[in-house]
Every structure is written in C-alpha cells, then in structure tokens.
Amino acid sequence: MSGFGILLHKEWREALRTAKLIWLPAVFLLLGFLQPLTAKFMPDILASAGNLPEGTLIQIPVPTPGEVLGQTISQFGTVGLLAVCLAFMGTIAGEKRNGTADWILVKPVSPLAYVASKWVMLCLIVSIAFGLGFGGSWYYTNLLIGVPNSGDVLISALLYYIWLVFIGTVTIMTSALLRSPAAAAFITFGGAIVLQLVHGLFDNKLSWLPSGLDAAAISKLTTGSSPSWAGSAIVTVISIATLLTVAAKGAVLRKKG
C-alpha cells in the first residue's frame, strides 16, 4: 500500500480545488431542505395557485415526520445518486485519459493504494454530503412537521450511507475499466436504477441485493419497521471489497496506444 497517505492528501486537495467538496454537499443540502418544505407548504401552494371555487376543501393528508424523511431519501435516490456518479466518474477514467494515472503509476505506488485513496476520499465526501443533507432534512422536519424516532433515523441513515458508498464504489470500478468518464457515470446510474427496480419487483426472492439497503432505509422511516437487511449488508460489503480489487486491476490495464 505504499504511497497511500500521499495519494489521499492529493485526492483531498483535488476535491477542494475542483470544488467537489462544495458542490456535492450543497446539492444534498438543497435536496434535504426541499422535502420537508414541500411537505409543509404544499397545501398552501396549491390553495394559492389554483383558482378553486370558494369553499373547496383541500385534503392532503399531512405526512408523518418519518414519511418526510423517507421522501428525502427517495430524492437522494435520483438526483443525489446521479450527482455521486457524476462526481466520481472521472476519478480513474479521466486520469487514464489525460495521462496523469501513468504519472502516478510509474512511481513506486501500488495500484491498490491508488484505488484505495480514491475510495477513502469517496467515503469521506459522501459522508459529508449525505450527512449534511440528511441532517438538514431532519432538522427542518423537526421544525416544520414533527419529531421522528431518532433511532429509526440513525439506522436508516447508516443503511443509506452504505448504499451510496456502494454506488460510489461501482463508479470507481467502471471508471477504472472504461475509457469514457460519462459512460462510467451513466452505466453506474442505470445499474443503480435497475437494482432498485429489480429489488422492488422481486422483493421476497432478491432481498439480499445491495438495493435492499435503500429499500430498508425508506421503509424503516415510513413504517417504523424494516425487512431484514442483514443479507443485503453482507452482500454489499463483500461486493465493495471485490469491486475495489477489480478496480485496482483495471487501473493498470492499458489499451492500445
């Protein structure tokens, strides 16, 4: 693992100077704030926007605090997930394409250290972005809707964080194997959507899929109970380790040229 510390330092400075450490948390914060705000003010907005006849009663059931946080996570599952894929798509593919990967790998650095430095930075940036976004959403929900069960919130947060890291890890791997960063991002994002759909369709048979973590996080918040997620968690952790090994092999792979 020689070179890991220095590479991690390089990744950190790069995240700062390319503003990744600003825009990714900002995106999650906005998504997090918007959900409780919409839940609170949607009836008012509808009332003021529509030319409804006098005396029309608008009956939108006010969601529970847990439901609002569950919706926040659903939001993270689309725009947030896409942002993660886009933020890390170039992490290896871009460096291979412009030659900086060679610059690093001709020095006495192990490929695993190279990939690991990127993965640790992924975990860190995602924890900052997701932590702020979900924390913000939690705070606004407390303020506007009501107080959810803290235990449920924390467990969901942990499960969803692992899911996000999993998707980020897939991005790192596709980035190591593919030439084009954009292809890496969209294949990963598409894969994540498919995983979520498949899990929704074959819930009872495929509950061990990594996307089970995402489903469990939402159901824990909305219903207070969640299906067993232990299987998903184990599969996800093993997958992450495998993906990183593949990424390390892929990072040193060179096509003609």
Binding site: T18, A19, K20, W23, A26, V27, L30, L31, V79, L82, A83, L86, A87, M89, G90, G94, R97, N98, A182, A185
Partner: peptide, 16 residues
C-alpha cells in the same frame, strides 16, 4: 435548479 451546476461541474470542465 440544482441540476444545472451539477452538469457544469461534471461536463463543463476540460481535463487539463
């Protein structure tokens, strides 16, 4: 909103 800046950070920059 939101997506615009994401797209810029993801695709607007040329690799130097």
């Amino acid at each position: 909103n939101i997506v615009g800046p994401i797209l810029f950070f993801a695709f607007g920059r040329k690799e130097s």
